[in-house]
């Protein structure tokens, strides 16, 4: 399973909307090497490029709501508002516990989420919450 981590200075890039590069790793294969790729400038083109390159999981920093919706619509499983060193994130991806192990950005943790009425207890959703967005997009009739 391919995962993309938007990076800057060996950490997760602070803002996906303007991120310049992504590290693509095969989370299932610990022997594989990670590959750094440049991202297009246009925010929506970044998502298209990631989806087209076969990335299934996107680990990124802050991401604006329209882009998060677009990423979910493009079929990406987004771990938004993540922080920390790239090495730690790759390790968490390979351990299969990225959703729980990755640090969240300050002010985006569970306590803050609760206060902002994001999700409910037990949910692992962060920030604006990809799953919630994906659910709201589900109102469009799916293919039969």
């Amino acid at each position: 399973m391919k995962a993309g981590i938007t990076i800057w200075n060996d950490r997760i890039a602070p803002v996906f909307d303007v991120a310049g590069s992504v590290l693509v790793v095969d989370a299932a294969d610990p022997t594989s090497t990670a590959e750094t790729r440049a991202l297009p400038q246009s925010p929506f083109a970044k998502i298209e490029a990631l989806a087209q390159s076969g990335v299934k999981v996107l680990v990124c920093g802050a991401i604006s709501r329209p882009l998060l919706r677009a990423a979910c619509a493009a079929g990406l499983n987004v771990i938004p508002f993540a922080a920390g060193s790239v090495t730690e994130v790759i390790q968490a991806l390979r351990n299969g516990d990225i959703e729980t192990a990755a640090q969240t950005m300050p002010g985006c943790g569970c306590q803050q989420r609760g206060r902002q009425n994001h999700g409910t207890a037990g949910q692992t959703g962060r920030g604006a919450g990809c799953r919630r967005e994906a659910h709201s997009l589900g109102r469009y009739p799916p293919e039969p």
Binding site: W8, R11, A13, P14, V15, D17, V18, A19, G20, G61, A62, A83, M105, P106, G107
Partner: peptide
Amino acid sequence: ICSEVFRCSLCE
């Protein structure tokens, strides 16, 4: 780290 708190388009 300020960029992770501030999350500004100019940080990077």
